[in-house]
């Protein structure tokens, strides 16, 4: 019975798909490639300027991250980021800019619910899972490496 229901659902989904226009795979990919590439290249150029000014490579890298995050968040606040992302798609979501945007976007929207439970809590509604999964898997890697080093 349950299996039969699933089969019908699958058949209907397939049927519905023939009425659904496909996304422009090639065009979207090209846009993502170009914009993503440009972001990486510009940040490399910026990093090179900083190291040329006498900064260590590590510090310069950190400054580049800070600049990218701040720029993306400012653009989100100005209401421009979603317009760019509509065009560039993964080109701005996959770089660290997408992570920065995912913190500000929900927080902005929940302003009316207050600075603590509105903005404060909602900053993590999208970014929270990223931090939780990323940090806990990295800590697990750290512990595994530490254990491996002991034996």
């Amino acid at each position: 019975m349950e299996g039969e229901k699933k089969e019908i659902a699958k058949a209907y989904e397939k049927y519905a798909r023939q009425f659904t226009p496909k996304p422009d795979y090639l065009g979207n990919s090209i846009k993502a490639f170009l914009v993503g590439g440009v972001i990486c290249t510009v940040s490399l150029w910026f990093q090179n300027r900083l190291t040329a000014g006498g900064m260590t490579e590590k510090d310069a890298g950190i400054f580049v991250t800070i600049a990218l995050v701040a720029a993306a968040q400012l653009l989100t606040g100005l209401g421009v980021f979603d317009v760019i992302a509509k065009f560039a798609g993964a080109g701005v979501i996959v770089p660290i800019t997408g992570f920065a945007n995912s913190m500000v976007a929900p927080a902005l929207e929940y302003k009316k619910e207050g600075p603590v439970l509105g903005v404060g809590a909602k900053m993590f509604s999208v970014a929270g899972p990223v931090l939780v999964c990323g940090i806990s898997s990295a800590v697990a890697v750290g512990i595994i490496y530490w254990l491996a080093g002991r034996f």
Partner: peptide, 15 residues
């Protein structure tokens, strides 16, 4: 840097 960054983003777009 351009090509690698672009390729990683393209993977995301395809996903």
């Amino acid at each position: 840097a351009f090509v690698t960054g672009g390729v990683i983003c393209t993977i995301g777009q395809i996903l």
